[in-house]
Amino acid sequence: MATKKEILEALADYQINCNNNKRLRKMQRNWTRKLNFVAEDTGDVFSMEVVNGEITSFKPAPIEDPDIIVTSTSENLCDMFWGDLNPSQKYLQGEIRVKASQEDILRLDAISMIIWPED
């Protein structure tokens, strides 16, 4: 079980990696979304705001009117933000659940694929 502090550290690293990746910023340049991440085992909720592909903020609290809600275990969320798991695989196994449009689900997966390519 990952603690709130661990997930926030992971989110901070995720923010740096996303914002510093030129390929990702190009792809997501028109993508502005509010995201909630729900750790179902601990009950913690985290949120993130993306404006034109840049992660502008994240916090350990839910955001109103999100465009995307990602639900999984705290461990999976932590590993996902550190780039240690393949979100698509977990999604296909039903371990990560996403409430969003198909386009947003694909873009969310694209973030991990681009910042941590599987060589």
Binding site: Q28, Q89, E103, E118
Partner: peptide, 18 residues
């Protein structure tokens, strides 16, 4: 992406994210 088909099928277009 799940390594069931060759990885080339998971390539995304950089401008359109498709």
């Amino acid at each position: 992406r799940d390594n069931v088909l060759p990885r080339t099928f998971s390539k995304l277009h950089l401008s359109y994210a498709t």
